[in-house]
């Protein structure tokens, strides 16, 4: 009988094991040491591994990323945290013009094995600047990879893959899912299973179905599973595809799923316009045009900044909005 674990605890376990296995790995950021992080994701790591391996930095995100680059040039494997998604904006210059380009600029002489842990997305009634969906911005930048876990087991195994990868990865942790517990195999087993079955850039069908594919990541995966369960009551068999990686994107996985369901709805929290829904929709058109029974639908945040309080419930794709999009794909008739 497998134990259950929260995503927060799963990430903590992964970091603990990474620090133990690789003495070049470093965990740092604002309040990650003594406090254990504002979400307690790094709880106990400084005490166990020492303040040379897990340390607090002053409050300056650009410097956290710039420091990571210098540490990587020195041969370290930095795992910085930026405390909240919105706090990545002050670091964008270092992320885009430096971290993402140093390997290219140096012709491969200076690999950048930096994994940026970034608590991300909305759904926790946070103040302004504490709930943002930056994935399309990161995925657009040459030289960056982007991973988003939706559950504790994936958070554990994806983080280990990100840290082992020689390239910079933005690891976006869906903060609304930190405290949801889920089945979690013994870590060693989980890691072996994931590495054997799901290499970097591979998505997972988390619920098989025949009539329509919901493409999602992060906290939207659980919401899409809810949608699938409700649709099933009406006899609609919904497949849910958890992308897990937004760069590299699993083109083959998306095509395979939509190729057999012949309908697709892409769901994300980020604003609709120029979001990843557009990219994924275009890929589906390029690869599944002859199979499609209906135009690809997108359910996304509106083209507004993340709003406060209860308005957030209207901004983030709801079960009803996703169900309505599913309905549109089923009712579509060629004109």
């Amino acid at each position: 009988m497998a134990e259950t674990l929260s995503m927060q605890a799963a990430i903590n376990t992964a970091l603990d094991e990474i620090l133990t296995a690789d003495d070049r790995a470093l965990v740092f950021g604002e309040d990650v040491g003594t406090l254990g992080g504002v979400f307690r994701v790094t709880d106990g790591l400084a005490a166990k591994h020492g303040s040379d391996r897990v340390f607090d930095t002053p409050l300056a995100e650009s410097a956290i990323i710039g420091m990571s680059i210098g540490l990587a040039i020195h041969g370290f494997r930095p795992i910085p945290e930026i405390q909240f998604d919105g706090f990545a904006y002050p670091a964008m210059n270092q992320l885009i013009t430096q971290l993402a380009r140093m390997t290219y600029r140096s012709r491969g002489a200076l690999p950048m094995p930096v994994t940026l842990r970034l608590p991300s997305f909305g759904g926790i009634r946070a103040p302004e600047h504490h709930g943002e969906s930056l994935e399309a911005i990161f995925a657009h930048v040459p030289g960056l990879k982007v991973a988003v876990p939706s559950n504790p087991s994936d958070a554990y195994s994806l983080l280990k893959q990100c840290v082992a990868d020689p390239d910079p990865v933005i690891f976006m942790e869906p903060k609304s899912r930190y405290w949801h517990k889920a089945e979690f195999g013994q870590p060693a087993e989980a890691a072996a299973r994931i590495e054997a079955e799901l290499p970097i850039g591979v998505s997972r069908v988390v619920r098989p179905g025949r009539h329509v594919t919901l493409v999602a990541w992060g906290a939207m995966v659980a919401r899409c599973i809810q949608v699938a369960e409700l649709a099933a009551e009406d006899g609609v068999d919904v497949e849910v595809l958890d992308l897990r990686w937004l760069k590299p994107l699993d083109v083959a996985g998306i095509s395979a799923s939509v190729g057999h369901t012949r309908r697709a709805v892409v769901v994300h929290e980020a604003p609709l316009s120029a979001g990843l829904g557009a990219e994924i929709s275009a890929l589906i058109t390029e690869n599944c045009f002859d199979s499609l029974r209906a135009p690809v639908q997108r359910v996304a945040g509106f083209d507004v900044a993340y709003p406060a309080g209860p308005l957030e419930d209207h901004y983030i794709p709801s079960v009803d909005r996703i169900l309505a999009a599913v309905q549109r794909t089923l009712e579509y008739r060629r004109g």
């Binding site: 410097a63 710039g66 420091m67 680059i69 210098g70 040039i73 020195h74 270092q94």
Partner: peptide
């Protein structure tokens, strides 16, 4: 900043 990080 990279020089600072290297020094760290």
């Amino acid at each position: 900043l990279h020089a600072m990080g290297w020094a760290k």
